[in-house]
């Protein structure tokens, strides 16, 4: 089980490669009550000027959240904050990679700050963000 004292700046989260299918994106959007064409239909998304169907921002946030909580594991730590910036649409039918690095360790608060991002096959960073994890 991971302990706070063992966490070091530069520790990595991932990389986790995920093939994101259109069915997964449609299912997520509908389950979350976001059943709008840009998340479910290529032609309708293109009519809005998008390159095709895109994943909802919340879905990207959720995947990055899972990257961090997978890293937390059973340590008893908690994901206290996750903030993201959306740079380019995340498109289904592509393999995306989730990455993270520990960038700061704050012993006084037993807090760890982490950079996280999603990139596509061309190493373009589609979504970037930072997370804070608090240890017991």
């Amino acid at each position: 089980m991971m302990k706070f004292d063992a966490v070091k700046i530069g520790d990595t989260l991932g990389p986790q490669e995920i093939y994101l299918s259109k069915d997964q994106v449609r299912t997520y959007a509908r389950t979350c009550g976001m059943d709008v064409p840009r998340f479910t239909d290529d032609a309708a998304a293109r009519a809005e000027g998008l390159p095709g169907m895109i994943a909802p921002g919340n879905m990207s946030l959720g995947m990055l959240s899972r990257l961090v909580t997978d890293w937390i594991g059973s340590s008893g730590a908690r994901l206290a904050r996750l903030g993201t910036t959306y740079r380019q649409p995340v498109q289904p039918d592509h393999t995306i990679t989730l990455n993270g690095f520990v960038t700061h360790v704050e012993p006084a608060e037993k807090r760890v700050d982490i950079d996280v991002w999603i990139e596509n096959e061309d190493a373009e960073r589609l979504v970037i963000g930072t997370a804070s994890v608090e240890f017991p």
Binding site: L20, S21, P92, H94, T95, E121
Partner: peptide, 14 residues
């Protein structure tokens, strides 16, 4: 330098 990520297989094909 990143190792290449395999091209995705579209839904229809899979």
């Amino acid at each position: 330098k990143r190792k290449p990520v395999p091209a995705a297989v579209p839904d229809e094909v899979s």
